[in-house]
Design a protein around this nucleic acid. Structure first.
Length: 320
RNA sequence: GGCGGGUUCGCAUAGUGGCAAUUGCGGCAGACUGUAAAUCUGCUCCCUCUGGGUUCCUUGGUUCGAGUCCAAGACCCGCCA
């Protein structure tokens, strides 16, 4: 039996398109590390170009985890990720090896750092029912229902105008009854006192340029063909997989609903907005030491800096 | 050259004579424990900001009052030449 508290990892975080993956790969090669991706879209098989998945050559050179773990018609969740990731890290640890955890999905990262409060899983019937209520009658009935059923929980919601959260809260109440708190419990650490993550960042102008050229590159690398293939497989993308930026836009293009330039423009905008949210999340929810990669540093130089920071701060403990 | 349509706060749109002016997008900031590349919130003309100042192509007019009505001009778009 492993000593669970001993499991830890080196984190590399940051907004999309700053170059996290390349740096992580570089370090993994140098130091023979495993890479665990903490990215909610890299988990889907067959969604490669649009998610900027590591290449086959890269995946042959370094042991990657968290990639291609479910087919794209299956829905996924933080809980599933946390469970999977903990197993992976335990395995790596038992081999006496190190893991680099790279990713932009803040919630996944946080789930590894803080654990997740156990709770009921997704109840598709319940979600369908309440989504239907939402679509026909608006958000009012959801708020009223929860307020009546569990006023404490309703008040504890940081955002009671968010249908997604309301439905999740209702789902919880229906499954385990009242009195269950939403959000973090005992083990919560404030971001300032929490463990240090290393992050890559750059100026908004530079990031916008990188995003734009990245999206254009995806179109050159065959994003549209990839989406066509996914469509031709007959199975629909799962609720979670179809949220991937770029895929809805490319399928609009395939269906003749927009031009290629429109699809590209829309994809760039959505990616930019996503990067902004990531920036907000990491700076507010976690304690990040940022490395500014603006000034034309190459991957190896950035890798050295990242490793220096990892040495300087303690590795981040992983919570079960 | 003739006839018609249009010009509104970055873009697109709404606007019965009482409007700092609708909505969408974008932008900025923020929230966040089972859909998170999602979802949601606030702000988005200017200022010395529980108030004040300038706005709706331009100029002039009607009116207590004009983005809204009238006249002329500028530019754009259709159709006929």
């Amino acid at each position: 039996m492993q000593n669970k508290s001993a499991i830890s990892g080196c984190f590399l975080v940051g907004p999309t398109a700053v170059g996290k993956s390349a740096v992580a790969h570089c370090i993994a090669l140098q130091d023979h590390c495993n890479i665990l991706s903490a990215d909610s879209m890299l988990i889907y098989k067959g969604m490669d170009v649009g998610t900027a998945k590591p290449s086959r050559a890269e995946m042959a050179a370094v042991r990657y985890y968290g990639i291609d773990i479910v087919p794209p018609d299956v829905s996924y969740s933080v809980w599933a990720f946390k469970t999977y990731a903990y197993d992976v890290l335990e395995k790596i640890h038992s081999r006496g090896e190190r893991a680099i955890i790279v990713g932009g999905t803040g919630l996944y990262i946080k789930a590894l750092m803080h654990g997740l409060t156990p709770g009921p899983g997704v109840d598709p019937g319940l979600r369908a029912k309440w989504n239907n209520v939402l679509n026909t009658q608006g958000i009012g009935p959801l708020q009223e229902f929860l307020l009546k059923k569990d006023p404490e929980l309703y008040k504890s919601l940081s955002d009671n105008k968010n249908p997604r959260r309301l439905i999740r809260a209702i789902e919880r109440v229906e499954a385990v009854g009242t009195g269950v708190k939403n959000g973090l419990t005992e083990e919560w650490m404030s971001p300032e006192n929490g463990p240090v993550l290393v992050g890559l960042k750059c100026s908004p102008e530079e990031l916008n340029l990188r995003i734009e050229s990245r999206v254009r590159a995806m179109y050159c690398q065959g994003l549209v063909e990839e989406v066509r293939m996914l469509m031709e497989q007959g199975k629909q993308l799962s609720v979670t997989a179809r949220q991937a930026i770029g895929y809805a836009e490319a399928s609009d293009l395939l269906n003749g609903h927009c031009s290629k330039e429109e699809a590209i423009a829309r994809t760039i905008i959505r990616t930019r907005q996503y990067a902004k949210r990531q920036k907000t999340w990491f700076s507010r929810q976690t304690n990040v030491k940022w490395i500014d990669v603006d000034a034309g540093m190459n991957t190896a130089e950035i890798a050295d800096l990242v490793k220096e920071y990892w040495r300087k701060y303690e590795p981040v403990p992983i919570k079960k």
